[in-house]
Design a binder for these strands. Structure first.
Ligand SMILES: [Mn+2]
Ligand SMILES: [Mn+2]
Ligand SMILES: [Zn+2]
Ligand SMILES: [Zn+2]
Lengths: 145, 145
DNA sequence: CTTATACTTTAGAATGATTATAAATTAATT
DNA sequence: AATTAATTTATAATCATTCTAAAGTATAAG
């Protein structure tokens, strides 16, 4: 069966990162890396998903620890938006986003959908670490009766 | 003398925005709009500058109120970065930024230094509100003895 | 100029996200 | 099975931001 295989894979991933495969971490892996699609989330959203999916609670501190651990190992990327909370992204490659303000939702943009033909040169003694586009979206229905 | 003129101008600006020209607001105007260059700041930085420049204290709540007021009137723009605090920008036009991570500093990029040749189409029923680039910088001296 | 009114400032409390702490639990090692 | 080290947990602490309600100030009216 497939479930077993995913489970084992998450254990191996965790071990290869030098993180003990605890049941909390394995479950978080199932949420984050069990789907094929990119996944954008906040710590609180992840906590809610965890509670619903596994009908068990987990300490918020563990969610923070795990997410920070995955980020440090390069398995998650932190994303910056309005507001005071962080978003995380299972797509750790450099890429661009739509941000739908109405739904407070991030959407990946494929790199080939964007062409950046010229970039400014970095200031002296600095080099470019990343180049990311944020395209904010609003609903079309502006002036309605 | 020039000082007087600037002062009067700030009063007029405030009046034209429907904001009473209180001494706190006029001083904040002097800080924000007294220089020609674009200015990026956090609420706390503005508070520190105010204390040093005028040797007087102001309530943080007033700084928040004023900054939010200017933002609503389109005289300031909020910028989004890592972390949990907001930056504000006296340049309210759509424009791109360098972010120097070492110095935690934003630098404007002139629009003509960037050419975006193709953009993705907005999802159904959504339209693009803004397109902004964030170019993160790091120091060159990485592998030093 | 004096009073009345609405707006503004202020200190401090409340909130919400995040981080720190220290004890209890669990995984890995012997 | 016992020992050690890592992890989880509840809870407290911190920090940016927002809220509140009382005191102060700018403007409008008389
Ligand atoms: Mn804000
Ligand atoms: Mn963080
Ligand atoms: Zn993404
Ligand atoms: Zn700027």
């Amino acid at each position: 069966m497939l479930k077993m295989k995913d489970f084992e894979e998450h254990i191996n991933t965790l071990r290869s990162l030098g993180l003990r495969p605890t049941k909390q971490r394995i479950k978080i892996c199932e949420i984050l890396f069990g789907k094929k699609a990119t996944f954008h989330f906040t710590v609180n959203q992840l906590n809610e998903i965890y509670k619903k999916k596994f009908k068990s609670k987990i300490s918020l501190a563990t969610i923070y620890n795990t997410v920070h651990g995955f980020k440090k190992k390069g398995y998650l990327k932190e994303i910056t938006l309005d507001g005071n909370k962080s978003y995380y992204d299972t797509n750790t490659l450099n890429h661009h986003h739509f941000y739908d303000e109405g739904e407070d939702k991030l959407i990946d943009i494929e790199n080939f959908d964007v062409s950046l033909n010229s970039l400014p040169k970095a200031p002296l003694n600095k080099s470019i670490k990343s180049v990311e586009l944020m395209i904010r979206l609003e609903n079309n229905n502006h002036n309605q009766k």
